[in-house]
Design a protein around this nucleic acid. Sequence first.
DNA 1: CAGTATCCCTGTCGATACTG
DNA 2: CAGTATCGACAGGGATACTG
Lengths: 129, 129
Amino acid sequence: MDDTTAAPHGTLRIDPSHRDVLDQVLDKWSVSILDQLCEQPCRFNALRRAIPGVTQKSLTATLRRLERNGIVERRVIADRPVAVEYRISPLGKTLREPVDVVLAWVTTHQSRIDRARREFDDATEGSGT
Amino acid sequence: MDDTTAAPHGTLRIDPSHRDVLDQVLDKWSVSILDQLCEQPCRFNALRRAIPGVTQKSLTATLRRLERNGIVERRVIADRPVAVEYRISPLGKTLREPVDVVLAWVTTHQSRIDRARREFDDATEGSGT
DNA sequence: CAGTATCCCTGTCGATACTG
DNA sequence: CAGTATCGACAGGGATACTG
């Protein structure tokens, strides 16, 4: 079957490792953290305040995961009233563009998506009952 | 370095609705489905066979979700030995590019990510015990 | 063929409490 | 301040069985 029409570059082959990276890097809180850290390095609680709704647990877990994947860097800047600074890594910076592209897509098509959802819900409404 | 690619900092505020869309269209199976349907319209079981590891339940749920979001179109093409064809929608086609960008990022940086993970795991190894 | 329905299990998430 | 530890609630995912 020829895929020259739909797939100009024939790229979209998903292997599990790719899926895995996406799961670790584009999950619920990662995008917000990425966004925040791209603006400026941030301490734990500052980050926490900057991202409404996140809990310590989730924030810690997400930061750890991003750190493990080389997206953010963790740095202890004091010993006494322990201060820890998180900053975006060079690798993390490169992630921003793809994420921006995706977010731009969402922004662009949000209304269309919303409409599709309403229409679907509307059409589905009478079928389940 | 000038960041013409990245949005000016602070502009891309992640609001819940964006997050919500991402969750619905970039989740575990959606990318594979998008990939497959971008190549050609597909019937349910064909799709199932094309995507190793997916179950009926997950496939059904994901297809429904994508349909609801206007990403794929569902079409009954026969009544007797019921046949259903799924195809990518115009909106769905526009999603391909952003996804492609993200996947390209993964491909490009995969080895670096893997290395970061190994280094992290290595450094962490002795601390948790 | 193309689902729906059910059970069950695991992972995740939030809330709370505690620590260096 | 920056976490760790623990618990309970809940959604998602797989396996299985059944249906138009």
